[in-house]
Design a protein around this nucleic acid. Structure first.
Lengths: 347, 347
DNA sequence: CTGAAAGCGCTTACAG
DNA sequence: CTGAAAGCGCTTACAG
């Protein structure tokens, strides 16, 4: 790299000390106005820009926020990241993104990486595999604030930003019931994740309101083995006593359902209706258009970042941590509508 | 932030000098093996991790790569970013992502931000609005290497990674012709972008092979005003002499076409066939499943990062810069298939 | 109002 | 083999 201009260069040029240059640049009041003007002019002329690395070393602040998500290329994640970037940028912070790829060990390694990079704070949504939270406690003990979003954990005492998973699942299930369904299956992910429990409870409570007894065989906990998942779904829908509707807790499973049902030539929604959590803007163009519970992903990112920067910059720590719960919205589309209604579908 | 342990702490604990600690940690050969062992043990015990900020200041290297994309939440961008992260991570670099939001001024500001953050190199795909490249030249003149990907510019002499836009457009258009179409429209973006020109040329040359005269009214240059774009499309397809197929140069326009055609109750592909560049994994689930030209986005990110790190780390600059051209693949689906064929469609 | 000095955490040429 | 010193770019308490 060629030489970047430093305050030393400005000082030399003006034959004054670096202290004076520094003070002039920072707008210190104890500097002679004319000196200040001179320094500013020369700085502009030489295209001086302060070296943040030097500042970081001095201040022990990097103005960098570390983020751990599952997968950048995942639509949900990238929308959240956009929200994070948005708020961070406004507040003069930069963002360092890492991915766990849903692997616990990678998540732990990322935590250490971010801490060693001396980020000012960390935003995390935990992996599917994560069951212990020592790695999170460890960085918090080092004094690095952490805010959890989306997939959070009760074991960690800090600010959290989630969507109202319970309500979202409840609304979707109530909708399926309103369409006449009583035999509703639920496809979900790791049993031990908070969002799994909350969405499951929303589903169960919705059934309960209509005195529908849940069928254990219709609640499927899936993992990341798409082939095995596909077989579970195939078994579910080929059974004599099969459900007439399926509610999926994540987009990935909705898509897999769509695929399997098409392969088996099962009509949606005539034979089996479909609804699921998803934020993909293409959802409405699917075949059939998919009924989705949408999450305010961009806002989640923004809000989590706002809370984190508060923790970073506030002298006094809050006596109580906040749990922000954002509302989901239900988008009813062809995949779950009674057939006669489906003809005048939204686009 | 609480106190993070430094080499000074280790030195104090062992009553030796920081120089010795530093050398032991770095595995210098001129250190007594037993001293070295001791230092390593204490460092591990105290959970020492070197402060990269101090190193950056000394080495004038941050091991951070800056990236400028249009929009993180855009599927194409996030896939590329995943590839960038992948390679950077392997090489021990971190990535700082910024977004131009397709705005020239923001792109320039991001360029300055990244330079002032002292990134070791920059990866950029230019905005829709970008017509002058002085901001790119400026950072390169400061000694910060730049690699361009996707939307590149002839005016800048550096490594570039692109897909074979010409061939991708050519293949898609040839396919439409093979399906019996002669009246093929082309929807594209800013006229002055390289990718626009290349895709347009691929389209035109494909028509030429069959002696089909291009119709100027069927080549639409769109911008970001979705309403105006929608009206252009509506006008196109409501015309008496309308095309029987539309080839879109970007996903956004394919989706808009889909929307407009559905609104007008025009059957796809029976009345108008559709094909377009897109990498959305949901493409095959669309209604109808969309014929797409797919780009190897992940590889683009990886390759661009590889070339950038070469520029950063190699002592001698290459005498000639490379232009890497990656191949697209055509995925033929229901939106462009002759109806009788469409019945046994892939899923 | 201005300057010399110390210090942030680390490395390394120079002495010994 | 080990240590004291200088330096990366900057800020700021201390003197004057």
């Amino acid at each position: 790299m060629l030489h970047q201009v430093t305050i030393k260069d400005i000082a030399k040029r003006l034959r004054i000390s670096v202290s004076t240059v520094s003070r002039a640049l920072r707008g210190s009041t104890e500097i002679n106005a004319s000196t200040r003007k001179l320094v500013m002019e020369v700085a502009a002329e030489m295209k001086y820009s302060p070296n943040p690395v030097a500042l970081s070393l001095k201040e022990k602040k990097t103005r960098v926020i570390g983020v751990i998500v599952q997968e950048i290329a995942n639509n949900y994640c990238s929308l959240t990241i956009a929200g994070i970037e948005d708020w961070a940028c406004k507040m003069g912070y930069n963002v360092l993104i890492t991915q766990s790829h849903e692997c616990f060990n990678t998540e732990v390694a990322n935590m250490h990486l971010l801490a060693s990079r001396r980020v000012d704070g960390i935003l995390i949504t935990i992996s599917n595999e994560t069951k212990t939270l020592d790695h999170v406690r460890e960085v918090m003990d080092k004094g690095i604030p952490v805010v959890m979003f989306d997939r959070v954990s009760d074991e960690i005492n800090t600010h959290k930003v989630v969507v109202d998973d319970y309500q979202g699942a409840y609304d979707a299930t109530r909708h399926l019931i309103a369409q006449g369904h009583k035999k509703i299956a639920h496809l979900t992910i790791s049993r031990h994740l908070g969002i799994t429990q909350n969405r499951l409870n929303g589903y169960l409570d919705a059934l309960r309101t209509e005195n529908i007894r849940p069928n254990k065989n219709w609640i499927l906990f899936c993992d990341f083995n798409e082939i095995a998942n596909g077989q579970m779904i195939r078994k579910l829908v080929k059974d004599k006593n099969r459900p007439t509707a399926i509610f999926c807790s994540v987009e990935r499973l909705s898509m897999l359902c769509l695929k399997v049902l098409k392969e088996l030539n099962i009509q949606i929604p005539e034979e089996i209706a479909l609804a699921g959590f998803s934020d993909n803007p293409l959802g409405k163009y699917l075949n059939p258009a998919l009924t989705t519970v949408n999450q305010p992903t961009f806002s989640i990112g923004q809000k989590a970042t706002e809370l984190l920067i508060d923790l970073i910059e506030d002298e006094i720590q809050p006596e109580a941590f906040k749990i922000i719960q954002l509302q989901t919205t239900l988008n009813i589309r062809a995949s779950s509508m009674e057939v006669e209604k489906a003809s005048n579908v939204e686009n």
